[in-house]
Computed example of a mutant assay.
Amino acid sequence: MLILKNCSYLSKDRNFVTGNIAVDKDTIVNIGDFNISSEDIVVDLNGKKVIPGLIDIHFHGAVGYDVMDASPEEFNKISSYLAKCGTTSYLATTITSSKKNLFVALSNIKEAANNKHLAQASIEGVHIEGPYINSEKKGCHDVNYMRAPLNSEFDELKSGFGDTLELHFTIAPEIQGAEEFIKYACKSGATVSIGHTNAKTETVKAALGWGANIFTHLYNAMRGIDHREPGVAGTALNSDSYVELISDGVHVHPDIVNITYKLKGSEKLVLVTDAMKAAGLGDGTYDFGGFKVIVKDGIARQENGTLASSTLTMLNAVKNIMKFTGASLEEAVRMGSENPARAAHIFDRVGSIETGKKADLVVLNDNLEVQSVYCRGKQI
């Protein structure tokens, strides 16, 4: 077995505790104070902090590759980059496209997800962001491919993935067919996020009743708050649902991040990156969703100035939320690991340091930088 000795690990009670972590193959099998065999492989961490691997449930690409057209081999490069940054699990996120292109992308995602023997971040599912959204809040999505959701299309998606990967959808609840689809998808085991929507509060409340449990990149591409109409954002803040937040200080002003934290707490905030292919590469000209995107000073925008995803990493999102709100490391890690796992229904296997869960572990140095990463027990 692999033993991470003398570490300060984030326990399931969300406190840092001094002890050891034992890993057998890809699974955590023991935690705390226990006997170590002479046959064990021991890594003495000398008190360094160990957190559960971070989980990004809204991620479009990195290092020059896009989820929509990456080959299985290119997904390996994406997953390797993520692991080096402290992200050990993610939902590969698609963008509005033709049905043909969507299913080609999903086929590549499914094949890439089978590379579980490699020391890299694992694809736990797919986040289908569009085409079931409102053109009035399109963001950087192509209106030509937006369409109403159909239960028959859900069945096609479900049959293609089986039980191997989670299905997570962003849907505008006011569009035709949304109510039936959300109810059907949630009953079938998928999760649904409310996003890219111009719905009014009553429709949003109804969608939560249909089964939606989270909001896609809160404040961005949705009806804002008015004192006579809470809108999507206001209803999200006043609900018990999870909310995604892009904590880069650009998509949402730091003061609004702080207000959101005060209202939702660390219990319901889900940090995401919404990163695109420029992540890990730097400034330059790229394409995303069929549009030209210019990245300057790390900020990605279309030529018309519309924000087009980000170049953020999950670890930087964790550090930013601490800076913007005064949240503790324990709270910030919860927002970057446990909460996304719970929202996407994958907390049974990832999102915390507990026996029986995947050995996805990130060792941090004193400056909260990645010192080493273990993906399913394999050090990258």
Rank of each mutant, 00 (worst) to 15 (best):
F324D: 01
L237K: 05
N101D: 15
G249V: 05
K262F: 08
E330F: 02
V272M: 13
G326Y: 08
N339R: 11
A62F: 07
S247P: 05
S266I: 01
V350P: 01
I299G: 02
N46Q: 09
G160E: 03
L54Q: 00
V350W: 01
W210C: 03
K48N: 14
I259S: 00
E136H: 09
V143P: 11
K292Q: 13
I346S: 05
Y132S: 03
H60Y: 06
I109D: 10
V43Y: 08
A343F: 08
K49M: 05
V63E: 02
A359H: 04
R228D: 05
T203D: 14
L2Y: 07
I109W: 06
H345D: 10
I194W: 06
L102K: 08
H127A: 04
G234M: 07
A341F: 11
I175W: 09
M1P: 12
V270D: 13
S247G: 11
A185F: 06
E111T: 14
A199G: 11
E156S: 11
D240S: 15
S337R: 01
G224H: 12
F215K: 01
E354Q: 13
V252P: 09
L218A: 12
T313I: 06
F347D: 11
T197P: 10
E369M: 03
R376W: 05
F347M: 00
A212P: 12
N220S: 03
C186Y: 12
G61V: 13
F181L: 10
L106E: 03
D360F: 01
N114Y: 12
L271H: 00
I95A: 03
V373C: 14
E153G: 14
E129I: 07
E39C: 08
T197S: 15
L208F: 12
I51A: 01
N339F: 00
F103N: 01
M146I: 04
I109S: 10
N134S: 14
T170E: 15
I171R: 12
K200Y: 14
T170A: 14
T170P: 15
G290N: 05
T88M: 12
D26E: 13
I55T: 09
R301A: 07
E267N: 13
Q302M: 14
G19D: 09
E153Q: 15
K100P: 01
K116I: 00
T285S: 05
Q302C: 12
S188P: 03
A343V: 13
A148G: 00
A83S: 15
V192R: 11
K158H: 12
I171C: 13
Y81P: 01
C375G: 03
T94E: 04
E174G: 08
S89A: 14
P52L: 02
E229I: 08
T311A: 09
V363G: 07
M222D: 04
G86C: 04
R14E: 07
I55L: 09
L312Y: 04
S241T: 04
I55R: 00
K205C: 09
M68E: 08
S135T: 12
I380T: 07
E156Q: 10
V363L: 09
S107R: 14
K77I: 08
N365D: 15
G231D: 06
N365R: 10
D248S: 10
V17Y: 10
